[in-house]
Design a binder for these strands. Structure first.
Lengths: 210, 210
DNA sequence: CAAGTAGCCTACCGTGAGTAGCCTACTGGC
DNA sequence: GCCAGTAGGCTACTCACGGTAGGCTACTTG
C-alpha cells in the first residue's frame, strides 16, 4: 500500500516526466493493487497503464512482460513476508514456540490483506510459473532453516520436504480462512501448531540443544 | 487416458457425425491430455478442436467455455483420485495407518502422471477459480471424513482446517517431488505420515475406539 | 547551440476466446 | 414418397489483450 506515497511523489514532477527508478516503484505498487483486485488473468496491462496515467510501452519498458511483472510483485511480497516471519521467530527458542510464532506472523500478515492473498497465492502465471515455484522454494528454504537450526538429524532433502509440507498446508488453510472470518489468527495458529509440532519434534528434536 | 478408446469409438461413426454424449466424453479426454501437455494458458481451444478433427463451435456447444471445460476436467480427475484414496483407506483401522495409506495412494496416483499433475495442480483458471477452490474443499471434506471417523472431539470447522492443511501440504510436496525423481512414493509417504500422525492422534485420538 | 538521450505517445500486429449465421443429413408424421 | 424439424457441423467473423514499431519532445552535455 505504498501506492499513495509513490503517487504523490510522482505527481511532484513537471510535464509528467518521471525518473525511471521512481516509475518502476510506481508500476510495482500499482500492479500489486491491480492483481489483488482482479487476479492475474483479470488484470490488464492497459488498465494498469491507465491507472498510472501513462501508456502501455512505458510499462513494458520497465517490466518486460506481464509475467515478469507478476513475478516481481510476488518476489517483493514474499520478501516482506519472510522478513516478518524471521523477526517473529528470532525471539523464540524451542521448536514448538518458533513454529507457533512463525505461523502466527504469517497469518497476521495475510489477515491484513485477505482478499489480496487469495489473488496472489492461488495463482500461477502460465509458462512463467517456474519462477513462482522458485519463490515458493525460497520461502520453504527459509522455513527449513528456521526448523533445522536445532539439530541436523535429517538430510537436507527431507528437511525441505517437511518445510514445503508445512508451508503448503498453512497457505491452503489461509486461503480457506477467507471464508471463515470469525476465526482469529491466534486460534488457527494454535491449531496448526498442535498439528505440526509433535511430528516435527519427533523428527528433528525440540531445538533446545543446550 | 481413455483418449485412445474414445477416439476409436468416435471413428466408427459415418460422415463424422457423432452423438452428443460421446463427443462430450471425447472433448473431456482430449482436453485433459492437452491441459497436461501445455498447461491451462498454453492450451488453445483451436488446437483442441483440431485434435478432435472438429471445429471450435462444436467444442463450445458441449462445454460452454474454456474455464468450464477445465473445471469439468479437474472434477473428473479429482473424483477418480478420491475413489482411489477411499479404497486404500478403507482397508486400514488406526488413524496412523489410514493416513499413511491415503497419502501413499495419492502419491502413487500422482506418480503415474507426474507432468500432468504439475499442470493441473498448480493452476488457477481466472475468475472461475472459485469452482476449483470448491473442488479442493470437496477433497478436503473427504479427508476430513477419513480422519474424523475415529472420534468427534473437534468441531467440524477445525477438522476441516486440519484436513486442508494435510491436503495442501501433501499437494505442495507432490509438486516439488517432480524435481526429485529419486524419491520413492513410499519414502515420502513415510516421512509425511511421521509429520502428521503424532499431531493428529493427539488432537483426534488414534481411531482405535474399539 | 548542436547532438545525444531519457521518457512518452499513437497506432499498429498477432493470437486466441467466443459467436453469428448457414449448411447437411437423418428422423418421423402424413 | 415427401416435407418439416432438428441434431451435428462448418466458415468466417468480432473483440480483448499482450506486446511492439517508430516517432516526438524536452532536458542534459560537450
Amino acid at each position: 500500500m505504498t501506492t499513495r506515497a509513490v503517487t504523490r511523489e510522482v505527481a511532484e514532477h513537471a510535464h509528467g516526466r518521471v525518473p525511471r527508478e521512481l516509475r518502476r516503484r510506481q508500476v510495482l505498487a500499482e500492479a500489486k493493487g491491480l492483481f489483488v483486485e482482479r487476479g492475474y488473468q483479470g488484470a490488464s496491462m492497459e488498465e494498469l497503464a491507465k491507472r498510472m496515467g501513462v501508456s502501455k510501452p512505458v510499462v513494458y519498458a520497465l517490466v518486460g512482460s506481464k509475467e515478469a511483472l507478476f513475478r516481481d510483485v510476488m518476489a517483493q511480497v514474499s520478501e516482506e513476508l519472510s522478513l516478518r516471519m524471521a523477526e517473529a521467530v528470532a525471539a523464540e527458542r524451542s521448536l514448538e514456540r518458533r513454529l507457533h510464532a512463525g505461523i502466527l506472523a504469517f497469518l497476521r500478515y495475510v489477515a491484513a490483506e485477505r482478499r489480496g492473498w487469495k489473488a496472489l497465492l492461488s495463482m500461477e502465471a502460465g509458462p512463467g510459473s517456474e519462477e513462482i515455484v522458485a519463490i515458493k522454494r525460497g520461502q520453504a528454504q527459509l522455513v527449513a532453516a528456521l526448523l533445522g537450526s536445532g539439530t541436523g538429524e535429517l538430510d537436507a532433502r527431507r528437511l525441505e520436504a517437511l518445510a514445503l509440507a508445512v508451508n503448503g498446508g498453512v497457505e491452503t488453510v489461509a486461503l480457506w480462512w477467507e471464508t471463515q472470518p470469525e476465526l482469529t489468527p491466534e486460534t488457527l495458529a494454535e491449531l496448526l501448531t498442535k498439528l505440526y509440532a509433535p511430528g516435527l519434534v519427533a523428527l528433528l528434536g525440540d531445538g533446545e540443544a543446550a
